[in-house]
Amino acid sequence: MIIPFYGVWLLLITAVQSTVLKGIEILSVKPNLFLIFVLMIALLRGRKEGMIAGALFGLFLDISAGRLIGAYGILYLYMGFMVGIISERFISRAHFAFSLILTFVFTIMTEFVYFLLTLTVLSGADMGYSLLHIILPSAVYNTAAASVMYFLVLKSLKFIGGVKIDEY
């Protein structure tokens, strides 16, 4: 059941991210469902699946964007690994508020590294502007979207009986 689960989510997120979300942009920024999903999987399913989901979903985001293919793949692979370790070692159970904090922190981290990786592409990109007008608003928006995604991912995981950590 877990492979169809990822297949459906991958198709849904890839389609929604580049269509419907344009309609709810705020200040030219939209939430990143790929990042939020990987983070939730790493929290709820542990580091191994977090890594695999990170590599797969990141790669699909790269292919959808058509630039620097592999950049988000590698970033989300390591994000899945790190969030998985945090989930397994430092918190006894997946915590809603904690997932929001992690979303905020990891959005800033991954988008900042992505910005550094793409400095050659984004000619004339200004770090201060990008931080204040793209990265920080993305982190806020992702955190808000994560508050909904958390329950959707949790519900769908419970539906297929795929929740590894018992207490929520």
Binding site: N32, R67, T118
Partner: peptide
Amino acid sequence: LIATDPTNWYSTFT
């Protein structure tokens, strides 16, 4: 036009 850029960095569409 069927899709826009999925990231917040670029301005492309499909």
